[in-house]
C-alpha cells in the first residue's frame, strides 16, 4: 500500500517523542546555563601559566625560554625576558618573563605550547567564557591574568598535574642530593688545609 513507509516513519517519531518523557536517553538536552554538563578531564580551552607555593611572582615556573612562542602556529604569544634572574624549584637561577601576553582572539587552542614546554610551566585551562566588549585589549591576556596556582591545575587535570608534580619533585630531590654531595666533598678539603689555624 502506498504510504506504509511514511507511516513507519511516523511511528518512529512518535516513539522518540513519547520516549523523551520516560527515558533519559531520548532527552539529551541540558538546560544551560542552569545545568552544565560535567567537564571532561582532558578538555582544553586556552593556556594559562602555573605557579607553585601560592607565589605568582617568585613561584612562576616559566623561565622565558621562548620555545612556546616559537612553536605557536598562529604566533599569539608575546614574551619579553626580564633582566634579573630568580631561583626556580631546584634553586638554580633562571630568567623569567617580564611580559607574557597571549592574544586569545588568535589562539586556536591547539595545545602545542603546552606540549613543547620543557618546564611544565604553561598548561591548558578549561574556562571558555571570555566574552568581553573590548575587541583588542579585552582579549589580550597578560601575565597577571594568566598566572594561576598549582592547586587550580591539580583540580582541573588531576592525572597530568600528579605526573608534573612527581617530575618536578624528582628533579628537586636530584638537585638537593647533588648539592649535598658537593658540600660533603668540600668539607674534607677544608680540614686538610694546613696552616689555617683558628
Amino acid at each position: 500500500m502506498l504510504g506504509t513507509g511514511i507511516i513507519k516513519g511516523m511511528a518512529e517519531t512518535a516513539r522518540n517523542f513519547l520516549g523523551s518523557y520516560t527515558s533519559e536517553e531520548r532527552l539529551p538536552t541540558v538546560q544551560y546555563p542552569e545545568e552544565k554538563l560535567p567537564a571532561k578531564e582532558n578538555a582544553r580551552s586556552f593556556p594559562f601559566l602555573v605557579y607553585d607555593r601560592n607565589d605568582p611572582e617568585l613561584g612562576l615556573r616559566c623561565v622565558a625560554c621562548l620555545i612556546c612562542e616559537k612553536e605557536c602556529p598562529p604566533q599569539c604569544i608575546y614574551i619579553v625576558k626580564d633582566t634579573t634572574k630568580k631561583p626556580d624549584h631546584t634553586g638554580k637561577l633562571q630568567a623569567h618573563p617580564k611580559t607574557f601576553d597571549i592574544d586569545i582572539s588568535v589562539c586556536m587552542s591547539c595545545q602545542i605550547c603546552a606540549e613543547v614546554c620543557p618546564f611544565d610551566a604553561i598548561k591548558m585551562d578549561i574556562e571558555y567564557a571570555f566574552s568581553t566588549g573590548d575587541r583588542f585589549e579585552g582579549l589580550l591576556l597578560h601575565k597577571e591574568q594568566l598566572a594561576k596556582p598549582n592547586d587550580h591545575y591539580q583540580k582541573i587535570h588531576p592525572t597530568e598535574a600528579a605526573e608534573a608534580d612527581a617530575r618536578l619533585a624528582e628533579e628537586k630531590a636530584k638537585a638537593e642530593a647533588k648539592a649535598k654531595a658537593a658540600a660533603a666533598a668540600e668539607k674534607p678539603a677544608e680540614m686538610a688545609v694546613p696552616g689555617s689555624v683558628r
Binding site: K40, E41, N42, A43, R44, S109
Partner: peptide, 27 residues
Amino acid sequence: LDLFESLTGARMMCNYMRFGGCRVDLP
C-alpha cells in the same frame, strides 16, 4: 564527540596525530 573530547581534549579540532604515532595514550 564526547569520546573525542576525553581522548584528545577537543570535540572537533582534535590535533591528535603526530609524526610517528599519536599524541597521548588512551585514558
